[in-house]
Design a protein around this nucleic acid. Structure first.
Lengths: 124, 124
DNA sequence: CTGAGTGTACTAAGCGTAATAGTACACTTG
DNA sequence: CAAGTGTACTATTACGCTTAGTACACTCAG
């Protein structure tokens, strides 16, 4: 389910968080479906249970999952809000990049052409 | 010249590198002009000389500056290549973000609208 | 009820990077 | 020659990531 990349400089727990979040938001993981337990996930990924616990805590913090003591961790029922939030973050990131391009001396026209190059034609 | 942000999670030397690079690429720092010495810059920024040295080493590595033993560090004469390289990185970053938006379930049309929203009208 | 499995919360240790501190050496310039 | 410079080390401290181990409250199947 999760694929860890040892060459990725980011910490393991962060990779787990990002991939789980993506799976939940995309609907690959059904709402209210149960996730592997902390210990089981740790076994599968060859990680320490504490590392997985840290990832689950972060996911809980972001509202992607909810925890039930003695039962397990479950996918949150409203991931659409998370999805919209992530799209907003993407929007902000692009804004920062365009601003940075301007700082590098790119003209408005050059920035427009840059953006234009990513426009795709709709398949009919 | 340089402004350090203690709340920025990135290491100090990285902040120095990025800001110096931006100043050099934008032409704020003239080509072949001399930079503050390692020790002087360390004084100004309240950093250890070693930290500044690390930043200068990275800038040397990127081709932004060149060093002359016993004389000082100087702004590289051809920063246009660096500028183009940074613009290419911005292009790649936007590509990744658009790809991420698609992964989040955004349609091609929604991505186009997102890009369109950053298009600016040329001032005449 | 009992025991296995679960989430959760600690402490301790090892490891790597960032940063500071100090020293040393080769070089350039006045 | 002396001051200032780049450069290269070592040692130390601090912090975050990770592993390891333990402990406790809870749920559920038996």
């Amino acid at each position: 389910m999760i694929h860890l990349n040892l060459h990725d400089p980011r910490p393991m727990y962060e990779q787990v968080v990002d991939q789980m979040e993506m799976l939940a938001v995309r609907g690959v993981l059904e709402a209210d479906s149960r996730l592997p337990s902390v210990r089981q996930m740790a076994m599968e990924l060859s990680l320490n249970p504490n590392t997985v616990q840290k990832a689950y805590s972060e996911l809980l913090n972001r509202g992607v999952i909810y925890s039930v003591r003695g039962k397990g961790n479950f996918v949150s029922s409203d991931c659409s809000r998370i999805r919209q939030q992530k799209l907003d973050e993407i929007r902000s990131a692009i804004a920062r990049l365009i601003h940075q391009a301007h700082e590098l001396g790119a003209t408005t026209q050059q920035c427009n052409e840059l953006l234009q190059s990513f426009m795709e034609v709709e398949q009919s």
